[in-house]
């Protein structure tokens, strides 16, 4: 998208946010329709459960619309909304951790990876359908500690810069890089039999894209 087009989109969205803040229900609905799927995907990647993700999305939009007065107009609505979604989804994980006693500190990483390797269902020789691949990806993502899972959930959108991820999570860019690095390593270790070297292969890795100055300096 070129700069003038981005600017038009941003102005249109800002106007929509202002109308929604003034109580315009149609504007609220349009914001909901524009961002509900991105919000759902992030919530799903963090919670790993459709029903929890739907609850998170609903709660997050209610919170966002109730607090539109707090929205800083220099920021993007999507960034602001995804921050609410991420925090809410992590709350759901924490509540679940209390019930299931899932370790959060990642200290048992190696032990968990070894257990995953011993799983006979994960033999590299077993051909897997795409549905099974998706299921194994879900389980692998669920095995990530919440802090890495949150970074991965945003990274998996495929269009977010390190800076945006850092802004949404309120952590330094170096920490985003570190958490993403470790999350990718764990996923590679668990899914390497599905597509050898593909998650991290130099041959298949896409070149990173760099956002324009105008985009990143906004806000």
């Amino acid at each position: 998208m070129n700069k003038p087009a981005e600017s038009i989109v941003e102005k249109a969205e800002l106007r929509l946010v202002q109308q929604a803040a003034a109580g315009d229900r149609a504007a609220c609905r349009r914001l909901f329709e524009q961002h509900r799927e991105a919000a759902f995907r992030v919530a799903l990647r963090i919670t790993g459960c459709q029903q929890d993700a739907l609850d998170v999305v609903q709660d997050s939009f209610i919170r966002a619309f109730e607090c539109l007065g707090e929205f800083q107009h220099g920021a993007q609505f999507r960034t602001w909304l995804l921050r609410i979604v991420t925090n809410r989804a992590l709350d759901v994980l924490r509540a679940r951790r209390v019930r299931l006693a899932i370790p959060l500190d990642g200290h048992d990483d190696e032990a968990r990876l070894q257990l995953a390797d011993r799983d006979p269902a994960r033999s590299p020789q077993v051909p897997l359908e795409r549905g099974e691949l998706a299921d194994r990806l879900r389980r692998a993502v669920e095995s990530l500690p919440p802090d890495q899972r949150a970074v991965f959930a945003l990274y998996a959108s495929g269009d977010m810069t390190y800076e945006e991820i850092a802004e949404i999570l309120g952590i330094p860019i170096g920490t985003v890089m570190s958490r993403l690095y470790h999350a990718r390593r764990r996923l590679c270790a668990q899914l390497s039999d599905l597509a050898p070297r593909q998650l991290g292969s130099r041959n298949t890795t896409q070149r990173p894209t760099v956002r324009s100055e105008a985009k990143t300096q906004r806000g």
Binding site: R130, Y162, E163, L180, L199, V210
Partner: peptide, 15 residues
């Protein structure tokens, strides 16, 4: 570095 978008491998994107 903050402006970089970390690449998503195609196999992971498909899954």
């Amino acid at each position: 570095l903050g402006r970089q978008t970390p690449p998503l491998p195609p196999s992971l994107a498909r899954a």
